[in-house]
């Protein structure tokens, strides 16, 4: 599901990047919980680069279907005896690679198109904005199926598909944020001072919409993880030896049936991580824009 972007568009005044004043005495719960969950997730992925309980891709028939909470395999093993914790840890890495990868590429192209639409006249704006509207009305999941089937599945195709769906949303949010910055007096002064358009965009606009970009990135990082899980569940996303939580759910359903605990852990991992990132995004939105009415959870 795509994150709420409407509420982001009104963060754009440049004043909002000043550090949050101690305006609200109550603790920003979203932000704190979001930071905790997200950093836990990042640490686990980082640890997986150096240490894993066992190789998550090598079958170990003797240990197959070990139940959860046994000493050698805390969350048990799957139908081929592969350790669940090891698979979940590598899955965290995939989520970051694909989710953050897709969101980063979308941010890059969204920044270029959004700034171009905001700063380079009515024709450019109309072309880019209508193009973004068209792309937004195309159902991503169906196109991703076709894309994966024609280009072959894998992490790279998945990142490509995600960045294609996400770019128009970034374009729209960055465009409207940049437009309101461009109306500020200090932009006029810079222009009168003889600064060129590119200089003004790089020196004045981008730093002032950084908050919007960070929030948008965080929310689409989460959306990317959800979409990747869906594609991998369908078998057209990430493939082994990479491991994805969506893929683990698919394998659990195909091999041991859905009532096994194997169908619980990867789903739980997705929910916790996506929830963490969404809370972080909402929390950051409040901090980066103290004037914004609180709308999210």
């Amino acid at each position: 599901m795509l994150p709420e972007e409407a509420a982001l568009t009104d963060i754009a005044s440049p004043l909002h990047l000043t550090p949050a004043l101690p305006r609200r005495s109550s603790l920003n719960v979203s932000l704190v919980v979001g930071i905790l969950l997200t950093s836990g997730f990042l640490v686990i992925a980082l640890v997986s680069l150096f240490w894993l309980p066992s190789n998550p891709n090598i079958p170990n028939i003797k240990a197959r279907m070990t139940p959860p909470f046994s000493p050698a395999h805390w969350l048990g093993t799957d139908g081929l005896g592969r350790d669940i914790i090891a698979q979940l840890m590598v899955g965290a890495r995939t989520s970051i690679l694909v989710g953050a990868g897709g969101a980063s590429i979308a941010l890059f192209f969204g920044l270029i198109t959004g700034l171009a639409a905001a700063a380079y006249g009515k024709v450019a704006d109309e072309l880019i904005s209508r193009g973004a509207d068209i792309m937004l009305s195309i159902p991503g999941m169906v196109t991703a199926l076709v894309l994966a089937a024609t280009l072959g599945s894998g992490s790279f195709t998945t990142i490509l598909a995600l960045s294609a769906f996400f770019t128009p949303s970034f374009t729209r949010v960055i465009r409207s944020a940049a437009m309101s910055v461009l109306q500020e007096d200090f932009i006029t002064s810079a222009r009168l001072y003889g600064r060129g358009k590119l200089f003004i965009l790089a020196r004045h606009v981008i730093p002032n919409i950084a908050g919007v970009m960070i929030v948008q990135f965080t929310l689409y990082f989460a959306a990317g993880i959800l979409t990747e899980a869906g594609l991998s569940y369908l078998g057209v996303g990430v493939t082994r030896p990479s491991i994805s939580w969506g893929m683990m759910l698919n394998e659990a359903q195909q091999t041991v049936g859905i009532s096994s605990p194997l169908a619980i852990w990867p789903g739980l991992a997705i929910v916790i991580v996506v929830l963490g990132l969404n809370l972080l995004g909402d929390g950051l939105r409040d901090v980066l824009d103290p004037k914004l009415k609180r709308r999210g959870a």
Binding site: A229, Y233, A263, G267, V271, V274, L275, N278, A297
Partner: peptide
Amino acid sequence: LALISQIGIAVPVFWAGILLSVLFGVR
């Protein structure tokens, strides 16, 4: 309610399907 909706947004639709099917189908 806001928290429940926030959690619901984080649940992948296919996992919701799997859980419902375990509860109402299998159990």
